[in-house]
């Protein structure tokens, strides 16, 4: 029997704790408990109102068994087309703008001033919630899909540029060097040395972003930026749950189709 064994046999064994310092561990546990108590305590729930609402909730649930596509068919059609159009157009414009910004935001091929400007654009676009941007753009450009289109384009730029920039930063440098060695101009360098490497990934990301843009376009209508959201909002306001159910089913269906398509396309491209 070794000394190390002697030291341990007969003594209780405990799993070594995740956080080694017991002071820190207890501070974190007690801190979380206090936070939870305070947070739950600050919730002022009107249970009577919630209880009354259950009935309405059930009505809404039942509405899914007989969704009403017909009564407001015209409005639904206009809203859906607007949503799809916004998603498509903003994705295209977003990609077009993302490519130069993405190239500029990649540290390994960009010069510092351009890098900083592009990174700032990316950071602002990512930090601002789509809804907040939409509100501001509606205030500036007026109600309608133009504001929604601009919002989604702006969001797409932040999303794609960042990923594109990261992709370029990760990519094989040798290939870009090789093109430089042939004495190519900087434009040729981008077109032949860098883009071919990132295009498959870019296509995959764009399809994914189209999917996101459609989902987002469904809510922008709530703040007046066009799309199916406005129709949905109206149907809720009128308590027309059958119509609302129909719209939600359409959204879910479209999202599923887009997700399926994007899965296929991404698998084929990569």
């Amino acid at each position: 029997m070794s000394a190390a064994l002697d030291a341990r046999v007969g003594k209780p064994w405990k799993k070594p704790p995740f956080i080694a310092s017991s002071a820190l561990r207890w501070t974190m546990i007690i801190g979380s408990v206090i936070y939870l108590v305070l947070a739950i305590g600050s919730f002022d729930v009107n249970w009577a109102r919630v209880y009354r609402g259950l009935d309405r909730g059930w009505q809404f649930f039942v509405a899914f068994t007989h969704p009403d596509f017909v009564s407001r068919a015209g409005e639904i059609k206009v809203g859906m087309i607007e949503s799809v159009v916004m998603a498509l157009a903003s994705t295209v414009v977003g990609i077009a703008v993302s490519i130069p910004i993405g190239l500029g935001a990649a540290r390994n091929i960009s010069v510092l001033p351009i890098y900083l400007v592009c990174r700032a654009i990316v950071a602002i676009s990512r930090a601002l919630n789509e809804i907040v941007v939409a509100i501001l753009l509606v205030a500036i450009f007026g109600f309608g899909p133009l504001a929604g289109f601009l919002t989604l384009s702006f969001a797409t730029i932040g999303f794609l540029s960042k990923l594109l920039a990261e992709e370029i930063e990760d990519m094989d440098k040798v290939q870009a060097e090789a093109v430089r060695a042939t004495g190519a101009t900087w434009l040729q360098r981008y077109v032949f040395g860098i883009l071919p490497q990132v295009i498959p990934r870019l296509i995959g990301l764009s399809i994914y972003r189209l999917d996101i843009n459609f989902r987002e376009s469904a809510v922008l209508g709530i703040v007046g930026a066009g799309g199916i959201g406005a129709t949905l909002n109206t149907s809720f306001d009128r308590y027309e749950f059958d119509t609302a159910a129909a719209i939600l089913l359409l959204i879910i269906g479209t999202v599923m189709v887009l997700e399926y398509l994007s899965g296929i396309i991404r698998a084929r491209v990569q």
Binding site: G53, L54, R56, G57, F60, I131, R215, E216, A218, V219, I222, G229, L232, N233, F236, Y239, A244, L248, I251, I252, V255, M256
Partner: peptide, 14 residues
């Protein structure tokens, strides 16, 4: 598939 803002819209009504 449904954005949290739409869920909120719905739950506020309910």
């Amino acid at each position: 598939s449904i954005n949290s803002l739409i869920w909120a819209l719905l739950l506020v009504k309910i």
